[in-house]
Design a protein around this nucleic acid. Structure first.
Lengths: 336, 336
DNA sequence: GTGAAAGCGCTAACAA
DNA sequence: TTGTTAGCGCTTTCAC
């Protein structure tokens, strides 16, 4: 009861007193600003470690930087997003910046709440991964903080863009399937995706439609909610209803896994192709043919762009990453 | 060039002026504190929406709460952790709190840096998932902010604990394998796990050893780095070296998938059991027998504990979740 | 029911 | 080279 005085976190003032210098001096050492003698730096550093001092980010925020970058992620269950985050985290290694992830909860208006939360916390830069965040709000946000949009195929002079080459990826899938002789090919995508939209799934859908039109075939678009389970249900129902499709181009790997499961269960030969190349896709038991996107590199590049902006760049940047079709085979499934 | 005046974010002062009231009044409306007339509330609210006002969290942090809970996650590639985060996010839905995730980068001292980053940002509560964070530091941190440790099986009166029943899970796995007639069973775990440690992998290892001893068999522990790929490499090498094992108990599903891949490639009949029950485990092409942990519920409970602490609870809490062995079969693999 | 004012921990301009 | 000081935006007594 007598020991352990309710211990307050040490402040810059405490450090200053312990070292016998002014707050400004400590602050300078902290930011290693110009004009500090070696002796002083030493005493201050000693006091800091002794007091276990850690600068409060909130106090810094009130004067400028927070040394924090934020990334908004729509779906932690999708391994591709984890790769982006991993690349972003790694790119910050060794810098004084920290990455924080704001998960967009399922129901919310597509990540707007998570994005706002990041901005409210005054991050020094934001990466937005949910495609359909409100355009106007995004423009406004990017007036006050650097923004990188992931996967958008339109352009803005306000924010930067990192995306995969979805058009090339979509074409590669369709060329491959048509080359294999498939004609009755369905596209499996989320309910909300529209072919006119400049988002990854929109572009993939557009390429599907274009390729089918060029081949003189009718398009068949299957719609599903997010996730392997929902995808499975949709495809199961389609197959049970006697769908004559021989192949499915799924908008991403999770959906593809669901489709594979439904086909395997129904013992229907259905060639399934995915998108993203999540780790499980290359497992021999699955052997999912898919389009590889360099998620880590893309995440790292997004962080670089933010750091460039913070360092002063003002023109908008934009980088489209090459993708690559990975052709794989699995035990029971038909050629895809 | 003439329009768009460098727009500053609206502050509480701006709102006060627009509404013709004092800053204090606005603050009260914001926190809906006692003593505000309806008329005033209305004018203030109007001014807020009109100016698009959003309170700065950093400024709030200097006086108290940040309305932010932080969770430190060791490995975004592991789907089980994504489930925890999902449960935690969902539990915060509808509250004024926001969850932020700090990813622990691979090399760092097991999440300490990420934890510190969270504390530096003055989150109102922390969930730590990396098992081997520095004990002393943890105690110190929990003096200033509520902490929930995930998966620890020792006790502390400083922080709360949420864990799965790893002892029961480990026993279930071993009982199952031994019941199937397996005798040469290896345990596949990470390099750093020790049987004496009160962490999930330590407990699982201990149960493995105990069961083998009880069965009068020698223990064989295979060590690997984190991840499916590393696990695959290790098991591939073991099989190539002519290991006589007929079954493997993997410390978690990712490692199990790697083992399955190695066995499939080597065409060696190897029964593999995992832990966690990530979504892919139930895919029929994989059919991984594994121990199910209710990740979402565990994440949600951790958040609840934090909110209880914030609301004033002072005694330490501790909850161990039941787990369940899921027996599955896949096409090519031997009974597991 | 409403407002004045102090102060949280830090940075940076300026003075010494 | 070092120290003084004015805020940053908010919450919270405490008067009125």
């Amino acid at each position: 009861m007598t020991d352990a005085p309710a211990r307050r976190q040490a402040t810059i003032e405490d450090v200053a007193q312990a070292a016998g210098v002014s707050r400004a001096a400590v602050s300078k050492v902290l930011r290693n600003a110009y004009g500090v003698s070696d002796g002083m730096r030493e005493r201050v550093t000693a006091a800091m470690t002794q007091l276990n001092y850690r600068p409060r980010i909130a106090a810094r925020a009130m004067r400028g930087r927070t040394y924090t970058l934020g990334i908004e992620l729509p779906d932690l269950s999708n391994h591709f997003f984890a790769r982006i985050a991993r690349g972003a985290t790694a790119a910050l290694d060794g810098t004084s910046y920290q990455l924080i992830i704001a998960p967009a909860e399922a129901g919310s208006r597509e990540g707007m709440r998570a994005l706002d939360a990041l901005v409210d916390r005054q991050v020094d830069g934001v990466i937005a991964v949910s495609p359909r965040v409100d355009e106007a709000r995004l423009e406004r946000i990017s007036a006050s903080v650097p923004v990188v949009m992931f996967g958008r195929h339109d352009t803005s002079d306000r924010y930067d863009v990192v995306a995969g080459d979805d058009a090339a990826g979509g074409r590669a899938v369709m060329t491959h399937l048509l080359g294999l002789g498939h004609r009755r090919i369905a596209h499996l995508t989320l309910h909300e995706s529209g072919a006119h939209e400049p988002f990854p799934h929109g572009v993939r859908l557009r390429e599907y439609e274009a390729a089918m039109a060029a081949a003189g075939e009718d398009t068949v678009v299957w719609r599903t909610d997010e996730g392997e389970t929902a995808s499975y249900e949709v495809v199961r129902r389609m197959l049970a209803d006697g769908s004559p499709m021989t192949a499915v181009f799924a908008a991403h790997d999770e959906l593809a896994f669901g489709a594979m499961r439904a086909a395997a269960e129904a013992r229907v030969p259905l060639a399934v192709i995915g998108y993203d190349d999540v780790p499980m896709a290359s497992h021999p038991a699955l052997g999912l043919t898919t389009v590889h996107q360099p998620g880590e590199a893309m995440g790292a590049r997004a962080v670089e762009m933010l750091l460039e902006r913070i360092a002063g760049r003002t023109e908008a940047a934009r980088e489209i990453f090459d993708v690559e079709l990975k052709v794989r085979t699995s035990a029971g499934a038909p050629a895809a």
